[in-house]
Design a protein around this nucleic acid. Structure first.
Lengths: 256, 256
DNA sequence: ACCTTTCGTTCCGAATATAAGAACATTATT
DNA sequence: AATAATGTTCTTATATTCGGAACGAAAGGT
């Protein structure tokens, strides 16, 4: 097990509570006691007491019909506190809206957490067929423009970790060969942008550029994501506008 | 202390972890170890270990400059899972957008959690001076139209609890007298809507109506919130549109 | 530049909260 | 009606956590 981050002894009971919370996601919003205990390899009684503890504080709620538990409103509340403190988000928002207006495609803002990407904001195009992704969703970095632009600026060490974890195939065009992916990433970093299509979702296309903060590090990826068929003819112009928006956001974040 | 909800013994260590998380809000996003231990009446070592546990799982992050802790991205992630499962929200959204378009004022959707209200969605008017409130923020129920409509449909028992907790004054017009408030609430329930101004924020006005689900219970309050000076002349029409929207939402939720 | 205070972090023995496992209660399924 | 599956409760030994002191580093004042 990877305990590299474990400097001090952690509280096992507390950690277990957090691990239980982490089991809930948009694919699986409800868990029963037995299910959870099987999944985590814990005793039923242990999981049950943990869930009661969580329920008493509103972190989970019991569905009285199914008898199962789902995440409570308290987590929405705390999630919104986090959203508020991500001022990258508030700064980026107006620029994203303008960019969406111009491109008529969905605009996304993504950051890295650990070895994954998380979409922290989006402005969806009003087209009936459009690219859409849930906020807060954790996605691997090796497929899709918005994630690849982020991956390209990672340290070699992190890139290797991601590759070592395995490169999941999303479409027939996903780059799952590690050496080819690394070559692609180098090229992306050289050019300072990433245009890719069909590697994350068929028919989809993404144009992504990095956003920098005052330390000069890449803190986010900004992208226009939509349908290849609509975007391919004027991708140069879309790229230009996307870069303009990212530059403005970076400047507002203190990048020189 | 109120232990009515404490059926089974809860995990103290786990509960402490959750209590620590609850200390973070948009007014205070960063806490130091000593501060927190003073605030919660816990030993520094206890709080420190809890924070390390939380940090290891990404629930809090340490600001390397201030040495203090703030909520981590993991909570944004979980918060978004909660947002996704609140399908009241997805159903209500388009109606709220239409209503905002019509009213040119901010439209809010609020639910009850415990003895407080929480705004779970909003569509802000594009006016430069407009009513605005953060998503996920916990507010008392006795002031403001959106909250009072919710309070009006509560059980007598709950209303008494809220009154017993004390009625905070927000403006000179806030109704802080319990018997007058209760009389107001009865009237609101009779009429099925709430129009109030200046009791939560000076110059502000709210028009709020209830939203029902398939069980026939009030599950949310929908409101138009804006400036009194702009709204007062055509409040009847605004109310009508607000009611129409709420009815449509209720119907979509299965209310007859 | 030095002292003082404050704060985050570590350490260790004592104490107690918790895990483990079984048993019970309740609901669904056959 | 019998069986299976799932949520809940109970009890005790033990391993985790607390409590308190001590350490080191930074901040602030003199």
């Amino acid at each position: 097990m990877d305990n590299s981050s474990k400097k001090t002894a952690i509280l096992e009971t507390g950690d277990r509570i957090l691990r239980i919370l982490e089991c809930f996601n948009s694919e699986k919003t409800e868990w029963g006691v037995t299910e959870l205990s099987d999944y985590l390899g814990l005793y039923k009684s242990v999981v049950h007491r943990a869930l009661v503890t969580l329920e008493n504080r509103g972190f989970v709620t019991k569905n009285p019909i199914s008898q199962k538990y789902f995440l409570g409103i308290k987590l929405f509340e705390l999630g919104m506190v986090v959203a508020g403190q991500m001022n990258l988000r508030t700064i980026a928002r107006p620029f994203m809206e303008d960019l969406c207006e111009f491109a008529k495609e969905t605009v996304m803002l993504m950051i890295i957490d650990g070895l994954d990407g998380i979409c922290i904001d989006k402005v969806e195009s009003s087209q009936s067929v459009r690219y859409t992704t849930p906020l807060g969703k954790r996605v691997p970095l090796h497929a899709g423009a918005t994630t690849k632009i982020l991956m390209a600026y990672l340290s070699e060490e992190k890139i290797n970790k991601i590759v070592a974890r395995g490169l999941k195939r999303f479409t027939p065009y996903t780059v799952c060969d590690s050496s080819e992916l690394i070559k692609q990433l180098q090229l992306i970093k050289e050019k300072g942008y990433c245009i890719s299509s069909n590697d994350f979702s068929l028919g989809g296309m993404g144009i992504a550029v990095p956003v920098y903060d005052y330390t000069g590090n890449v803190v986010a990826g900004l992208s226009i994501s939509g349908l290849e068929i609509r975007m391919r003819e004027n991708k140069e112009q879309l790229l230009l506008e996307c870069q303009k928006a990212a530059d403005r956001i970076s400047k507002r974040l203190g990048a020189r």
